[in-house]
Design a protein around this nucleic acid. Structure first.
Lengths: 179, 179
DNA sequence: TCGATTTGTTAATCTAGATGAATGTTCCCT
DNA sequence: AGGGAACATTCATCTAGATTAACAAATCGA
């Protein structure tokens, strides 16, 4: 999604790190939030609500950037947990490096373009959450990210869709039956 | 939020128009999607689902930009309706004008910054939709946008929150009782 | 390799919020 | 000013999905 080398050149503080499956890249309550470029592997971000339940905000596989934008933008303590679903190689950097003066205008515009695309995806996510039943959200997810279901346990997909693992199990049975 | 004069200078095709309350600025199915800067008044965007129900995606008052980003980014027909809740003065422009070469780098970076903030708000919206009960979403909305409830009918706020007007009415009664 | 954790499924019961309907109120519009 | 539409509230009923629990299968770690 974003070019690794660009980031490394731009942000002198950027660093590459290797993580094991289940390791945390960020925890809730951290004072400073970074952005994470996934060079290899698979990450997920999620919150834990007042009842202790996890809610997956997003997944990020190779080439994606994952971050707690709310914390970064408004300088709040982080509210998201970010951990690894697979052993991963991650580039840690400051999102603000994209605002730096020594970056070419073309690069910035390119970055702007990517941001717009992600906003458009988020728009779709909100609309789906509000207006579509769980089964439609699931089929949309599978067709939008066909490679992810194979790498992600179903209960996490359920969480991403805003339903319980049991509900997703039932949905999948119904889909299988109707074919 | 964004500077009106900037847009006018940058996009030669940008135009200002006055709309009456209830007039449509965009309808579903349009081939070309524009961005709308609200100089004065109040707009809302929404979809109509397969059962004919409206779901408000966002409101935009003075200084905000409202657009169907999905349609713009992926060159799809528009899926959102956008109409006026008040008589409004609207600047219509091409989002792509922000990518233009004759825009100073500082302006682009400024714009990038605004985009990040809006992404952060969308992150919060998704998290709230997934993890918070309707009453919390309502109180969050009221405290985040205290001026809007006075200008927006409750059934549209309910729609924005993802609940029915009846449910919002009940929530408001409970809040009033508990005080 | 074996116990333990993680994962997925099924079923019974429960609940937040949807639906549908009736009623009153406020706001327009001409 | 007055009649119709839009708005808000209340209540009775319904339902998608949550919750709880029990169990089987797959995976993992030592």
């Amino acid at each position: 999604m974003e070019n690794l080398d660009d980031i490394l050149k731009i942000d002198p503080d950027a660093s590459v790190r290797f993580y094991k499956k289940k390791e945390f890249v960020q925890r809730k309550g951290g004072a400073k939030a970074y952005s994470f470029y996934v060079k290899k592997g698979l990450l997920r971000s999620y919150i834990i609500d007042s009842k202790g339940k996890e809610h997956v905000f997003m997944f990020a596989s190779e080439g994606w950037i994952i971050a707690d934008l709310e914390a970064i933008e408004f300088d709040e303590p982080t509210s998201l947990f970010i951990d690894c679903l697979e052993d991963s190689e991650i580039l840690i950097f400051n999102k603000n490096c994209f605002l730096k003066a020594d970056l070419s205008k073309e690069k910035i515009v390119e970055h702007l373009q990517l941001l717009y695309r992600r906003m458009a995806k988020l728009q779709r996510r909100v609309l789906m959450l509000m207006s579509s039943p769980a089964i439609d959200r699931y089929t949309h997810f599978v067709s939008a990210y066909p490679e992810l279901p194979q790498r992600i346990p179903q209960h996490m997909i359920a969480s991403y869709l805003g339903i319980t693992p049991q509900a997703l199990s039932t949905i999948r049975r119904k889909i299988a039956e109707s074919k």
